[in-house]
Computed example of a mutant assay.
Amino acid sequence: MSGISRSRAVPYEIVAIGASAGGVKALLTVLKALPADFPVPLVIVQHLDPRHDTVLAELLDRRSRLRVKLAEDGDVVEPGVAYLAPPDRHLLVGPGGELRLSHRDKVRFVRPSADPLFESVAEVYGQRALVCVLTGTGCDGLAGARAVSSRGGTVVAEDPSTAEFKGMPQAVVNAAAVDLTLPLDEIAAALVALIEGTMSL
């Protein structure tokens, strides 16, 4: 575990997760380990094939104690619900936790991209934002993680040495835009502990 020493008086209000290659397995691992009464909403970007509908939300919902649904434009986020970006749409969080789906240009060749999601979360939630970068190739999530860090939010990354694909978490670690670096099977417990205030950075 790595991180910085920092006390937090501001509670978290949202968790945003970004993943790419290897992400379905990683998301299953994290979501299965979260309690049904998880006290904040989750918003998730998993790079998906834009040419096909996805059953990923249904798969995650069946195997998780949380409710997992495909995000819809205008949804207002609720605690204990995970919202998954649909194929070929960026997922953004607006004021009041209202979700917006965008067909704007791809970011680093992908849509949805973790960067616009993280950046929107940073803008709306500031210090109350908690984001997590999981397995994936490339560096999607890096710019968004920097935005979250710059506004006092917290960034967790999967340990690149244990990630199925290390590109995305490694980029965040290399840029020092991360507060905690953890093996995949420890991430869910850390998210719970951070939100409950039983883990300090």
Rank of each mutant, 00 (worst) to 15 (best):
S2Q: 09
G3D: 06
S7T: 07
S7M: 03
S7I: 05
R8C: 01
P11T: 09
Y12L: 01
E13V: 11
E13H: 14
E13R: 14
A16S: 08
G18A: 01
G18L: 04
S20A: 00
A21Q: 00
V24G: 10
K25V: 10
K25C: 13
T29L: 10
V30P: 01
L31G: 05
K32G: 13
L34D: 02
P35F: 07
P39W: 08
V40K: 07
L42K: 07
L42F: 11
V45Q: 09
Q46A: 04
L48V: 07
R51K: 13
T54M: 14
E58A: 15
R63D: 15
S64W: 09
L66N: 12
R67C: 13
V68I: 13
V68L: 15
L70Y: 11
D73K: 11
V76M: 12
E78R: 15
L84V: 13
A85K: 14
A85V: 14
P87K: 12
R89K: 09
L91Y: 12
L92S: 07
V93E: 11
G94W: 07
G96Q: 09
G96N: 09
E98P: 14
R104M: 13
R104V: 11
R104N: 12
R104F: 12
D105H: 14
D105I: 15
K106P: 13
K106M: 05
V107M: 04
V107C: 07
R108M: 04
F109T: 13
V110L: 13
P112G: 12
D115L: 13
D115H: 09
E119G: 09
S120K: 15
A122G: 02
A122P: 03
A122E: 01
E123N: 10
Y125S: 07
G126T: 08
A129N: 09
V131D: 01
V131K: 02
L134I: 07
T135E: 01
G136Y: 06
G136P: 04
C139H: 08
A143R: 13
G144C: 03
S149K: 08
S150F: 03
R151K: 12
R151D: 00
G153H: 09
G153T: 02
V156R: 00
E158G: 04
E158Q: 08
E158N: 11
S161W: 08
T162C: 05
A163Y: 00
K166S: 05
K166T: 12
G167C: 00
M168I: 02
M168F: 06
M168L: 04
P169D: 04
V173Y: 09
N174H: 11
A176W: 02
A176T: 01
A176Y: 05
A177V: 04
L182V: 06
E186L: 05
I187T: 00
I195P: 00
I195V: 08
E196Y: 06
G197S: 07
T198N: 02
M199C: 05
L201F: 00
